[in-house]
Design a binder for these strands. Structure first.
Length: 184
DNA sequence: CTTACGATTCCC
DNA sequence: GGAATCGTAAGG
């Protein structure tokens, strides 16, 4: 078994979201027979980030953000789910939102779950990829470093492929360049 | 209990 | 540009 078939370890996630987010690009997000290559992420900071859910403090929803790194923070917005990975050391609520992946495996199943959309729209959004990979609130708090159903495996990429742009879909701190994507 | 509001998606 | 649609959080 090669290194890239082992889940990313706790130490990988125990860093600043601005470091973890770009490093997740190219990694493989897997759930059951479905797998996608991460192509877009966003960093949400633990301190003084008005756009971060943890900014308002510790609540039932944000509880997992204050726990150990490497766990899934899944939340719901309107009819959709979004997947984040908890980063930084325990007690420091940084996280990284997975915004898009490239379908790699189980594509037929993804099409079935997503309905009648072109393949290019299968997983090109945070809510879409959760629907395609069947990730939802049941995965809240799951350990992505362990033997859970959802896992993230190391991938490969060239540093020059990374694009840094402002976050989108939020109403505060909109200009902060915390969105990372593969030029592809 | 009531109200406000989305880290979205899809359609007009 | 706007609706869908519901859990979460905050306040009375």
């Amino acid at each position: 078994m090669t290194k890239r078939h082992r889940p990313l370890d706790r130490a990988f996630y125990a860093r600043d979201p601005r470091l973890v987010a770009p490093d997740l690009l190219g990694a493989m997000l897997a759930h059951g027979p479905t797998m996608g290559r991460i192509t877009e992420t966003e960093a949400y900071l633990a301190v003084d980030d008005p756009a971060a859910h943890a900014y308002r403090g510790r609540t039932k929803r944000t509880e997992v953000l204050f726990g150990r790194p490497g766990h899934a923070y899944v939340y719901r917005t309107r009819q959709h789910h979004c997947l984040n990975v908890v980063v930084q050391e325990e007690g420091v609520p940084g996280c990284v939102l997975i915004r898009a992946v490239e379908p790699i495996a189980g594509v037929a199943l993804m099409r079935c779950r997503r309905g009648d959309v072109p393949d290019s729209r299968l997983t090109d959004g945070p809510g879409k990829l959760c629907q395609a990979l069947a990730i939802d609130i049941r995965h809240y708090g799951e350990d992505l470093c362990g033997a859970g159903k959802v896992a993230i495996f190391a991938g490969e990429r060239e540093p020059s492929e990374i694009l840094t742009t402002p976050r989108i879909g939020i109403s505060r701190a909109v200009d902060w360049p915390l969105r990372y994507s593969l030029a592809s």
